[in-house]
Design a binder for these strands. Structure first.
Length: 648
RNA sequence: GCCGACGUAGCUCAGGGGUAGAGCGUUUCCUUGGUAAGGAAGAGGUCGCGGGUUCAAAUCCCGCCGUUGGCUCCA
């Protein structure tokens, strides 16, 4: 072993150390402050404990709280700390897994017969901090599989024993801090003292190994910080996020509602919500006309055979709304869960030539799916929703071009609605579960290849997810996060070779032979319900002018100016400006406050001065007084603003 | 569907074994006021629904319904 090794730091500089130096030593040699903040080390790209000796030349990055990997190391260690605290309070409990996650960490716990008090999380937090103050080191040790099994047998922890089954002897490590020892690959922070603030965020059930047939453990979600102040900031951020929740804003602004009598998961659109939705539909319809789509309309139900043919019945029939009976006992209809089978039949209604393709059938089609009750969530997961659906029927040689055009359309939609943060996900088959999918392997391979190629040609920054495909074809999904950080699929584009086969779709080629078209399913919004939910959370209810259900509020100073206010209002209505007059017997300050709370883009104040000069005082939401304008001036500038945003 | 929590006036919420409270909203009256809450009076609830315990249940227990945090699922 050489006595000296060379450490290369991220800035390219090199330093020489004695072999066996630790990352922490290196940090110390740079500055004591740095050493205090080092949570883990990245050695030649591999994250590891900062306290491990280094005995070869290496690239070293010191990970702190500023690095995602630093954070996740600390949260991983925090999961162990929470487990230690839990074990101290509830001796005899068993542990599943306890990984770091995007915001914090969790640990799955089997409390057995112990009565776990979910209302007293503060006791756990306090215990964690008490243990943290002991600055116990996280001690890593290699252990033989046999000894590891013995340890957990003694502890009677069947979960850890099951995890051990999958591990190779010789690669097993334990980490011990204070009184808690865990099977763990690491890495960990040097000691518990780095954890200065802890919060248990929620308690939930979670199936062991994600399998609903197995035991449900109690999952405790938590988060920790190196400073108390940061925890406070994080909790404030969470509070802010909750204020943007579409369920809250939807109620406040009177956009939508639910009714027990109508049924859960079946949203009711109130007048203002309906305007918002109608505006979005017009916007997309217009873009679709330009992109060569034809609007079609199909009924809300379809004969059972339609779905037997499509394969939806075999796949989802059992778990769906059950077939609708008619007085004629042999007849059964299903509430449509998808528009594609109907669109296939529309395609078949008229014989097609290769010259007709591509054909693009678009429909805002309302579909019904019996989602599991526990899954329902505001407008993002419902049982009845409207897809901005379209199906493109094209020749095999047109697939990629058509697919690319749809991507452009999705980007057009997202850009105009200010959706900047989204991820593009290529959703492919689960290679371990081929029975989940219909159709030939060749067709699947082809469809998946085409999607990946287009994604590459379009230079989409996409991630590949296996097992996320639809049962009939792979997808390109556009994913966004809601106010609480949950991921949802909005836009989707799917290549499908299978339904055309099942429905025996054909076109006559230039060779005068019959050929099979390819289908592309696509929905830029995904569903109107989910899209609007995310739009509400993105904008906090401050919709762009062209979408706002109420664009103006006319606020007369007193009753004397109601006549003038009505005069102004009818001029607005003639120019398709949406709004209302606040004729309540209230002072102007009150009317302004209420209009501000309702997030109405423009308030037009009219009183003595304005009525005398044929003007309005314009006040913009969130901005304040903009001064006076003539009614004509306002209308024309307003019209321009709307035109800029919607292009119509 | 599973585990946990919650359900009181239109909304937001307090209360809690002796048959209900606040603020906002709403209604009426006074006020006619110039850029984020004028004043007064009134109406409004079988405390989600159904059982049980009790002299007495909105309050305690059980079931159901709904909402909700997760898990599983998601055409």
């Amino acid at each position: 072993m050489s006595d000296q090794i060379t450490i290369t730091l991220p800035d390219g500089s090199t330093r020489k150390y004695d072999s066996g130096v630790t990352a922490l030593d290196v940090a110390m040699s740079i500055s004591e402050g740095l050493a205090r903040n080092v949570l883990a080390a990245k050695l030649d790209g591999e994250v590891q404990d900062s306290t491990l000796p280094i005995d070869v030349d290496a690239n070293l990055q010191l990970l702190t709280w500023k690095d995602d990997e630093g954070k996740s190391t600390m949260w991983h260690s925090s999961a162990h700390l929470m487990a230690e605290a839990l074990e101290a309070i509830y001796p005899g409990i068993k542990f599943g897994i306890g990984p770091p996650i995007e915001n914090g960490f969790y640990y799955d716990v089997d409390f057995g017969t112990i009565d776990f008090d979910a209302d007293n999380l503060a006791a756990i937090e306090n215990k964690m901090l008490e243990l943290a103050r002991e600055k116990n080191t996280y001690e890593r040790s290699g252990i033989s599989k046999e000894d590891a099994i013995t340890y957990f047998k003694e502890k009677d922890d069947e979960y850890k024993l099951e995890l051990l089954e999958d591990l190779e002897d010789g690669s097993i490590t334990f980490y011990k801090q204070g009184n808690f020892t865990d099977l763990c690959r690491g890495p960990h922070i040097p000691n518990t003292g780095y954890i200065k603030a802890a919060k248990i965020l929620s308690v939930a059930g979670a199936y062991w190994r994600g399998d609903e047939k197995r035991k449900q453990l109690t999952r405790l979600y938590g988060i920790t910080f190196p400073k108390q102040k940061e925890l406070k900031k994080y909790l404030e951020l969470l509070e802010e996020a909750k204020k943007r929740d579409h369920r809250k804003i939807g109620k406040e602004l009177g956009l939508f509602a639910f009714s027990e009598k109508v049924g859960k998961g079946l949203p009711l659109w109130l007048p203002k919500g309906a305007v918002l939705r109608e505006r979005l539909e017009s916007f997309l319809k217009k873009a679709q006309v330009k992109a060569g789509y034809d609007q079609v309309i199909s009924p809300h139900i379809g004969g059972k055979e339609l779905y037997v043919t499509s394969g939806h019945y075999a796949k989802y029939g059992e778990d769906s709304f059950q077939p609708i009976q008619t007085p004629n006992e042999d007849e059964e209809f299903l509430l449509k869960p998808m528009n594609c089978p109907h669109h296939c039949e529309i395609y078949k209604a008229v014989p097609k030539s290769y010259r007709d393709l591509p054909i693009r059938f678009a429909e805002f089609g309302t579909v019904y799916r019996y989602e599991q009750s526990g899954e329902l969530h505001g407008l993002t997961r419902v049982r009845g929703f409207t897809q901005d659906d379209a199906h493109i029927f094209c020749r095999p040689d047109q697939v990629k071009e058509e697919f690319a055009k749809v991507i452009d359309l999705v980007y057009y939609v997202f850009e105009n609605l200010g959706f900047e943060e989204f991820t593009v996900q290529v959703s492919l088959r689960d290679p371990n579960n081929p029975e989940k999918y219909i159709g030939s392997t060749e067709n699947w391979d082809r469809a998946e290849r085409e999607i990946r190629e287009v994604a590459e040609e379009k230079q989409l920054n996409s991630v590949v997810e296996y097992g996320e495909a639809a049962f009939y074809g792979p997808k390109l999904d556009f994913m966004v996060k809601d106010a609480l950080g949950r991921k949802w699929q909005l836009g989707t584009i799917q290549v499908d070779y299978n339904l055309p086969e099942r429905f025996e779709l054909e076109y006559t080629g230039s060779d005068n032979e019959k050929h099979r078209p390819v289908m592309i399913h696509r929905a830029p919004f995904g569903s109107m319900e989910r899209f609007i939910a995310i739009l509400i959370e993105n904008t906090a209810g401050n919709f762009p002018l062209w979408l706002a259900p109420e664009q103006i509020a006319i606020l007369p100073i007193s009753e004397k100016y109601h006549e003038y206010a009505n005069d102004v209002f009818s001029q607005m209505q003639e120019s398709d400006v949406r709004g209302f007059i606040d004729e309540r017997d209230e002072k102007i300050g009150k009317k302004i406050r209420d209009a501000e709370m309702k997030k109405i883009p423009y308030m037009l104040i009219v009183g003595e001065k304005e009525s005398a000069d044929g003007k309005v005082s314009v006040r913009m939401h969130g901005q304040g007084d903009l001064g006076t304008q003539s009614v004509e001036e306002f209308i024309s500038s307003f019209g321009q603003k709307v035109a800029e945003l919607i292009g119509q």
